[in-house]
C-alpha cells in the first residue's frame, strides 16, 4: 500500500480527491442550512439581529479570521513544501497550522464563556422570554460556531495524523494525496468561517 517504489502499488489520486471533494460538499450543505435560516430570520427581525450582533466583539472575530486565513496559507505552503521534498519545512508549516487552530479555539472558548456568564446562551436567563429574534440570533450563533469549532478540532486531529505520516515517510514527495486531502478539509473549515464571520459579526 505505502511502498512508493513498488511497481504494483495501485494509487488513484484523482479518485481519492474526488471522494474528498464529494465529502466536502456534504459538509458544505451541513453549514448551508443554518446560513439559509440566518438569512430568513435576518429579514424578519432586522433590528434584533443588528442589536444582537453589536454585542459580539468584532475585534475577536477579525483576529480569529486572520488566524484561520493564515493557517490556510501555512497548510497550502506545507503541500508545496512536501511536493518539493522539504520534509522539515512541511512539518514546521503543519505545526503552525495546528497551533493557529488551537489559538482559534482558545479565543472561541473565552468568547463563548463571556456570553454564557452573562446568561446569553440557548435557554439562558438573558434570552428567556425573548421574542424579538435575539434568541434566534444567538441560537444560530452557538449552533453554527459550535459545529464549526468541532470541525476545527477534527481538522487539527487530521493534520496531526498527517504530520506523523510525513515524519514516518508514509507521506512523501511522491505520495502526498493524504496530505492534500487533509489540506482540503482544513481549507473547507476556513471557507465556512469566511461566511460565518460576516453574518454574525459584520452584518449590522
Amino acid at each position: 500500500m505505502n511502498g512508493t517504489q513498488s511497481a504494483h502499488s495501485h494509487r488513484d489520486y484523482t479518485g481519492s480527491k474526488i471522494g474528498m471533494w464529494l465529502f466536502l460538499f456534504t459538509e458544505f450543505f451541513l453549514f448551508f442550512g443554518p446560513i439559509l435560516l440566518y438569512s430568513i430570520f435576518r429579514f424578519r427581525y432586522p433590528q434584533a439581529f443588528i442589536e444582537a450582533s453589536r454585542a459580539l466583539d468584532t475585534g475577536v472575530g477579525v483576529f480569529n479570521t486572520v488566524l484561520l486565513l493564515t493557517s490556510s496559507l501555512t497548510m497550502a505552503l506545507a503541500i508545496t513544501a512536501m511536493q518539493k521534498n522539504k520534509k522539515g519545512l512541511t512539518l514546521i508549516l503543519l505545526g503552525a497550522t495546528v497551533l493557529a487552530g488551537a489559538v482559534f479555539l482558545v479565543n472561541k472558548y473565552f468568547e463563548w464563556g463571556a456570553k454564557i456568564s452573562h446568561g446569553v446562551y440557548p435557554g439562558g436567563e438573558a434570552l428567556a422570554g425573548n421574542t424579538d429574534g435575539g434568541a434566534i440570533f444567538y441560537g444560530l450563533y452557538f449552533f453554527a460556531t459550535g459545529l464549526h469549532g468541532i470541525h476545527v478540532l477534527a481538522g487539527m486531529c487530521i493534520i496531526i495524523v498527517a504530520a506523523l505520516m510525513v515524519h514516518e515517510g508514509r507521506i512523501n514527495s511522491k505520495d502526498f494525496v493524504k496530505l492534500e486531502n487533509s489540506g482540503l478539509y482544513w481549507h473547507l473549515v476556513d471557507v465556512i468561517w469566511i461566511y460565518l464571520f460576516p453574518i454574525f459579526y459584520l452584518i449590522r
Binding site: 435576518r42 490556510s72 497548510m75 497550502a76 481549507h187 461566511y195 464571520f197 460576516p198 452584518i203
Partner: peptide, 20 residues
C-alpha cells in the same frame, strides 16, 4: 447585507481556486 456576502464569496473563490 449584500456586500459582505459578495466579498465572502470572492474570498471563498480564492481559497477554493488556489489553496484547494
Amino acid at each position: 447585507i449584500v456586500a459582505p456576502f459578495l466579498i465572502a464569496s470572492v474570498k471563498a473563490f480564492l481559497v477554493v481556486d488556489y489553496f484547494m
